[in-house]
Design a protein around this nucleic acid. Sequence first.
DNA 1: ACCTGAACACCGTTCAAGT
DNA 2: ACCTGAACACCGTTCAAGT
Lengths: 189, 189
Amino acid sequence: MAERKTYHHGALRQALIDGAKEILAESGHEQFSLNEVARRAGVSTAAPYRHFTNRDDLLSAVAEEGYQTLAVDLEKATGLVGLGGAYVRFAHEHPGLFVTMFRSRPGGEASAAGEAAFGTLLRAVLAAQESGAIPAYASPELTARSIWATLHGLAVLHLQRPHERYGLGGEPEELATTTLSALLGVKPE
Amino acid sequence: MAERKTYHHGALRQALIDGAKEILAESGHEQFSLNEVARRAGVSTAAPYRHFTNRDDLLSAVAEEGYQTLAVDLEKATGLVGLGGAYVRFAHEHPGLFVTMFRSRPGGEASAAGEAAFGTLLRAVLAAQESGAIPAYASPELTARSIWATLHGLAVLHLQRPHERYGLGGEPEELATTTLSALLGVKPE
DNA sequence: ACCTGAACACCGTTCAAGT
DNA sequence: ACCTGAACACCGTTCAAGT
């Protein structure tokens, strides 16, 4: 292990990001260590500082890739309920990455991928309101933000309290369906 | 500073909890350090281990007191919307404590105070459904859990993205009102 | 330009020893 | 019974020095 490679034109940068994702997947955000990432890449603990200003900067880069993956997942989903399920499933399948995404860059700019993800949700809300699948108590924007909050809370609570089953089943899709229908009366199409 | 006191019959235990809360309020959960708590209490860094098995055990005790404070806050609130506002306000006023509460004891038992807080929400939902203030798409239990998820997501997102204003204003009560009314059509009574 | 080696202050935790 | 002092492995970060 710790095979010594030579990194050229920024290859180390991506290797560090990939290694960080590995650690997050294996041990979670709490256990993440910058030194450990360096060790896995086979470089000294000082090497990452040529590519990132500090630990948080690396985690921000990881978070950005996480937003891209999330945006792709959401785009593949169909309907408001499918979208909600995909959001909760993402958190469930990548807990370390999910936590990292929403802890990083306090006060930083919104990620482009994050905006795209919201846009996908917004379109689904618009369609659901127009078809009458959900009531239009408020504008699509406000409703979409509110649903995002709901899905986010659901995901976070489910990660931290997996034993308290929100709804009947433990499957992310079932959680999202049950919750959204309890609040909005939306039915799976 | 670091005045050397003598602690008797468990007085150090509470002093450590209080010191931990201070640090959480000043610097947040991320910056929390067990050694720092010991320093503030004027004891050695090994002393806390007579009262807590480790760092997480101390934070769990802190979290439990947080749940008690939250339960009291919620009980003082009136109506579903008032309750939602109180929840979001608690997170807004005690961010470090709030994060600690929902990060601690993974798989541990639910706190009694946490259960009490949920009971308060449940009663408010029941009343709102009976008066017709909100639609009864689902059982009060399921609706209460769903609303909790919404409030939690709102609180978390607002802590991490204070610049993205959910709804028009930044006040916790306004956030909760706007969101709940967007989802449930509930009006402030 | 990119990485190493060694150092710094700090952390959580342990343990023998003091009172 | 409760706390100290000193140690351990580990962390994030810096910086002179190597290639």
